[in-house]
């Protein structure tokens, strides 16, 4: 595609920048995972540890860069971008929401119900 060859002239600089960014984020994740700072573990936000929220946000941040820079989503048309990204994000959020709510409910049943399972 003609327009691609034009603005692909020197993309290597950006590729290496994104690589460094992804590496730094991964290193931060691993360090946090190993030392597990007490205040992040003890603080909870919407029934989840703050540390876990940080991991999830950093993961989405990495996913954004992989999709936009490496898979070159930023260069695609708005229509393609939205039909792929919005569909995925919407369905995944929906599925995760219902399954986690249900999982939490089952946990409550196990905990408070008259079922003995630890024997």
């Amino acid at each position: 595609m003609a327009h691609d060859t034009a603005h692909h002239e020197s993309n290597t600089g950006r590729i290496w920048k994104v690589f460094i960014l992804l590496s730094v984020v991964t290193i931060v994740e691993v360090i946090l995972g190993i030392i597990k700072p007490a205040f992040l573990v003890e603080t909870t936000l919407i029934s989840m540890k703050l540390l876990n929220w940080i991991f999830i946000i950093l993961t989405i941040y990495k996913a954004y860069y992989i999709t936009w820079a490496f898979m070159h989503m930023e260069g695609e048309t708005k229509g393609l971008r939205r039909s792929v990204v919005w569909t995925g994000v919407f369905l995944i959020c929906y599925l995760v929401f219902i399954l986690l709510t249900e999982g939490d409910y089952v946990f409550e049943v196990f905990k408070n119900g008259y079922v003995s399972w630890d024997f």
Binding site: L80, V84, T87, G88, L91, I92, L95, V96, L99, L100, E102, G103, D104, V106, F107, F110, K111
Partner: peptide, 30 residues
């Protein structure tokens, strides 16, 4: 374009697995 839509469907498959993993984990959260 077809590669993109294949990726989308595959992403949904993987998120199905990961979400059911989350379900089981919430079930045995303690």
């Amino acid at each position: 374009m077809m590669m993109w839509f294949f990726i989308l469907s595959d992403a949904l498959t993987f998120s199905g697995f990961l979400a059911s993993y989350g379900f089981s984990r919430f079930k045995f959260i303690d």
